[in-house]
Nucleic acid binder design. Structure first.
Lengths: 217, 217, 217, 217
DNA sequence: TATGAATGAGCTTTCATTCAT
DNA sequence: GATGAATGAAAGCTCATTCAT
């Protein structure tokens, strides 16, 4: 919770974090062994305990490292009074979509960590909750602004709207390969697919929110 | 439909499936040990390998057992030509929401299994893909019908619409506790929360789809 | 703390207990690895956790198994009113010496476990304490009897006397090889040494106690 | 005597020795990690290997450092021809008791190291053996003197007498907490307990030896 | 001299599975 | 069919030690 003045993690620690992030994303936390992480990161097995203390703490470090990326991004743009509400929403949505594609590994980890279950890591739960609260607060502000200006509908359930927002993005993130398969896009490389999906998703989400928020068509 | 073509699973096997389903849902496949399943099911440890061959095959059995529940449900209603398209969509949506709440354990498992990854169980991947295709086909049919009748908009990207549909439902399923926390509903029991969420979600999804599909407000 | 009606430990468990006892006696608890125990006992490594849960619990099992041997032995003889006090003391002393030689491995373990230290196993500490209390109570009874009959001195500090009693026996148990070296008995086999020591110790302790307890010479 | 023949150990080395001594005393050699010692001593982990070569050599260094304390102490007093034998014995006993309480940590280590075992550190075994021989020689001298003067009994088994002597002292050193518990002295601080025990032990041992050595009461 | 980083071997324990009955 | 015993492999982690600076 304290702000870290220094980059905090050394290069080798970054290597480990990055390797772990990739593996946790694709095989899950429990499905990934510390040995695999060490191998993927090209470091000695014992280094992981040496640097992070435990596998659990390594996961926390990943959150600690990546979640910063979450906070800083959004707020700046939103507080510009000149931009009109819908544009602000659009900007916000684009950012959310972008960051999901840019940090897709981390997002996949986070999606898994969100799944309801009793004995989840508390530290991480709190981080996610805090992040959700922040974003929701932000969204609420813009929408209220739009409502006051008469641009947006009244009676918008923001929590449910967030469900749709993050639900759609997460669904895209997690089920790309199904999308690819169903739509006969097996010929595309992963990168091509990603580019296409990002473009489509950006438009889709904006269309969706225009429909949810305004009365225009 | 009522007759089961195969003797299916004995009572003891059902016990195991049911116990495994609960545990896989809350702790993940890799986070659950066969010992735990045996204990939760009240059966001997060796029975699980004995009956199902392996932990992996047990997971497949869960899918095998529950996915039927998926197929049968939807189609019947949809083929009624008297019901108008939007009503049909509404009925479909309600069913999807309901089955998600009714079989929330299995859905949580499925959500996890959908998360992109190279070395996932192929059998299950195919099951999920097939199920997705079926549902998408169904939805496509209704929507085309609505489009032909001039009730629905043209140019609807069904795949993305599905992302929003399942994304929203899944997001609700997996992040109930965050919703509860953020909205200050800690005083509700799990059951009360579920009832409330289901009601809200049903409305939300329908409103959403009306906005997506039609030009009315 | 509950009495076990059955022999409790299977043959294989006995093998493990016995092997562990030998190793713990000679190398200490922390100095012995579970692997060594498994090898010495000729069982699979995993069996030890399977049967006893952990290395710690195995140590407890050793105490559980051997400490019985402690309780039963002594009391019977002492309650005979016909035997005169000094004879009773002699009998008791002989028994104590004998059991130390018979179960010398276990005694060495117990000596180590008695050494003052903060994070010792509580279960074992309690067992040892209880055993010490019992024995002290027993000794107290005989001595009081002797004092009432005017055979023993007044003003005997029983606790300190016990220190001398068990101190001497334990010292013998733990430092046999030094005794052997110092007294030029390297030519004796372990067995021969033991026999000689036992005989000597029996006499020594009795002489000692006669001197402590009575006024005769 | 005040000049140290070798530069011996630097201050930092002394810190390490002292920390290790405390930890080995309470947790045993194998139960103590080099990391703990470094932390307790407030020095860098690598310093320990750097200074002493290995954990084993550190233990040897402790013996090397502390055993001097053993040798020098006793002999001086004993060679005074004016003091009568029993007084000499008394002085010796008091010294032995005192040094045990003063260097109780080191004594606990030594007690552990004495416990029979094939693969013990030879260097240390030799040190202990040599120390035992010296002390025994000393005792022998005084006793022979007393026997010649007709003050002490003939036929005294000195080795066994030593067993009783060190056995009693060691027993007190290692099982103080049991003594405290059994005699209902939980209200005493460690220091108060020690003071009381030392006083009692001094008297007890002397009484004991008077009884062993002489014919008086 | 002093130290943070690094290492390979080892630790205890648990895993999914199979065996013998 | 049903089960307690058994197994080899692997898990996460800590160990004493050494390296590079």
């Amino acid at each position: 919770m304290e702000e870290k003045p220094l980059p905090a993690y050394t290069e080798k620690q970054q290597q480990i974090i990055s390797a772990a992030e990739r593996l946790f994303a694709s095989k899950g936390f429990d499905g990934t062994s510390v040995r695999e992480i060490a191998q993927e990161a090209g470091v000695n097995l014992a280094m992981i305990s040496y640097y992070f203390g435990s596998k659990e703490k390594l996961l926390e470090a990943i959150f600690d490292e990546r979640i910063i990326y979450f906070r800083t991004e959004l707020e700046s743009v939103i507080n510009d009074p000149k931009i009109e509400p819908l544009k602000k929403v659009y900007q916000l949505l684009d950012k959310l979509v972008d960051r999901n594609f840019e940090r897709s590994c981390f997002h996949r980890i986070m999606i898994r960590e969100q799944i309801d279950s009793p004995n989840k890591n508390e530290f991480i739960q709190k981080m996610i909750l805090e992040s959700k609260k922040r974003t929701q607060e932000l969204v609420k502000k813009i929408i209220h602004e739009g409502q006051e200006k008469g641009v947006f509908k009244k009676n918008i359930d923001i929590s449910l709207m967030m469900m749709t927002l993050f639900g759609t993005i997460n669904q895209m993130t997690t089920t790309q390969h199904f999308y690819q398969e169903i739509n006969g896009l097996q010929h595309l490389t992963t990168e091509e697919l990603q580019t296409r999906l990002k473009k489509k998703l950006r438009i889709h989400i904006k269309t969706l929110f225009k429909a949810i928020l305004t009365n225009e068509n």
